[in-house]
Amino acid sequence: LLTGLLFPRSIRGLLRQKKRLLLNGRNIPTSELVSPGDKLSFSLETSDFSKGQNYLPNNDRRLRILSEKEDYLLVDKPAGMKMHPHSPNETDALLNYVEAQLKGHLSRSCPAHAFMVHRIDRDTSGVVIIAKNPLAVGILDQLLAKKRIKRTYLAWVSGNLENKKGSIDQAIAVDPINPYKRIVDQAGQKAVTHWTKIHTVYQNTLVRVSLETGRTHQIRVHFAAIGHPI
């Protein structure tokens, strides 16, 4: 089925509505079955790639670009900077600065814009992937979901962890008192965090962390739950 293609839902809808999806030269719906040897083609226009992108560019700060490809960037996000604005008029988020730095860049012969693929907390620093067009978002989303792109975190936690490595398997739910917070709650969503101890300094331990699941604030919630808050 064509619904299994690496297209974001918005792009699939666009191809369907504007009848730009062709199988062996004839227009088809996204529910069509394909067979070996079939030729599938589609077309996208410049306006398709900029539609829905509305981050105001801000040139006040230049972020460090670790790597740039035709369809995406790897950006060094500093601690204290939020990923995206929470209102249309905000301009102090990472995506506002990246949007300004992408001005004049081309992606697949179309103007490049900043599209968020994943996020890390405001207080967390690290590498984030920023897509340059909505088609790349769908492909990168699939690679993250299938663990083809692996993310590793480093965190200082309070106290001395006795074991060299371990896993935290505790469900996480929204705090009923504060919807912006998360708590351990067995009625919540499954969450698994794996950690390896690197070293301890003055009763604080540096750990390398990988996530089996990606719940909001998962690392913070899990280490607080075992008595070793970040």
Rank of each mutant, 00 (worst) to 15 (best):
L140V: 04
N89A: 12
D123R: 14
D92W: 09
L143F: 09
N59T: 15
Q101H: 07
D71P: 06
A114H: 06
N58T: 09
D48E: 01
S35C: 10
Q101I: 09
S107H: 02
S109I: 12
E70H: 03
N54C: 15
D141W: 06
R122L: 07
T91P: 07
L40C: 02
N54H: 12
T91E: 08
S109T: 13
F115W: 15
V34P: 06
D60I: 09
V137C: 08
S67R: 15
L102F: 05
R61M: 14
L106D: 09
V34N: 04
V34D: 12
Q142S: 14
G126Q: 05
N133S: 04
G126D: 00
L106P: 03
F115I: 12
D76F: 02
H86T: 15
Q142Y: 11
I65C: 05
A114M: 05
L95H: 07
V98E: 00
Q142V: 04
Y97L: 08
I139K: 12
A79G: 03
A100E: 08
S41Y: 05
A136H: 02
N96F: 04
V137A: 02
P111Y: 10
V75N: 09
E90G: 01
Q53Y: 10
Q101T: 03
P85T: 00
S47P: 01
P36T: 06
